[in-house]
Structure formats: C-alpha cells, structure tokens
Design a protein around this nucleic acid. Sequence first.
DNA 1: ACGTGATGTGGAGTATACTCCGTAGCAAAA
DNA 2: TTTTGCTACGGAGTATACTCCACATCACGT
Lengths: 71, 71
Amino acid sequence: MAIRQTFAENLRRYRLEAGLSQEELAHRAEIDRTYVSALERSVYAASIDMVARLGEELGVTAADLLREEPE
Amino acid sequence: MAIRQTFAENLRRYRLEAGLSQEELAHRAEIDRTYVSALERSVYAASIDMVARLGEELGVTAADLLREEPE
DNA sequence: ACGTGATGTGGAGTATACTCCGTAGCAAAA
DNA sequence: TTTTGCTACGGAGTATACTCCACATCACGT
C-alpha cells in the first residue's frame, strides 16, 4: 500500500501549494469532498481516472501524483 | 480516458520489453490474465494498487506506467 | 490438417471505489 | 461562548474494478 501513501502525500502537498481546501478541490474536480479526505488518509486505492482528474485541477500530471521523492 | 490509453500503451510496451506474455505477467503479479488483456485495451481504469503491482513485476514505477511520451 | 502459444471477448459473480447523507472535532475570530 | 472554515469519519447505497469461467481467433511450426 506504499503507493497509496505516496499518492496521499503528493495530493495533499500539491493541493496546499495550490491554496485549495479539500472541499474546493473536490468541487472543481466534481467529486465528493469526503472522498478527497479519504484519499489523503490512504483509505482507498484511487483509479487512474480519478488520479488524472485531480491532477488536472492541480496543474500536475497523474505521474506527478504517484512519483516518490518529488523534485 | 486519455490516461487509460497512456497506461495501456506503457503497460504493453514495458511488458514486451521484459519479454513477458500477458499470461506470464498476470501470473507473476497474481492477477487474472484476461484483466491484463483488458487493461491493454483501455477497458478499465486500474486502481493505483494494481498499477504499482504491475510496475513491480516490470521493473518500473507506477509513475513510469502513467507517464506520457516516455522518452 | 493438426497442435500449441498468445490474445480477445463475453457473462456472471465478488470486492471495492466512489457518492451522499449526517455528525463531530478543532482552531481562529467575534 | 458562539460562529465559521476545514477536516475526520461513520453508514448505506451505486458504480465499477477485478476474478474466473468458457469459447473463439490468429499465427506459427510440425
């Protein structure tokens, strides 16, 4: 499940860098706000469609969101 | 669905470079053979757990499998 | 023509991603 | 203390990822 943790950390980091709340991000990506919360807590293994949608709103690629040791 | 297509192409390419059949890869990653076939045809949006498992057997990262224009 | 390896594809079932509702906690501001 | 913004988290329902079966096709070698 290491990949979930990596994704969770990247998602939260990019979201905060974009200055967005979980709710704002969820609204823009047209997904549920509680699900964003769950993803940042590694509760679920998101689908690649979901990863791409979130990345779009954050201005990064799906690959970026799954990359370890970013930058 | 662009991300599915990218993933599908990368999966097939890395699999062939590794000299594995869909069946061999499926067996090593302990998943179903027909599912590997489906993924290479962009039928489903794989979960990030699944992407990571496949990447492990192919010697690449999950991010690699989702990266566009791989060199 | 026949057998074999590799892949595509359909159908039915199970596991889980994802949605939508509500409630609760906590920090900062009034 | 009360309000407001943000997040955690539970439960129940729906959508879909994923498994397992079977059968079909196509290319190749014998």
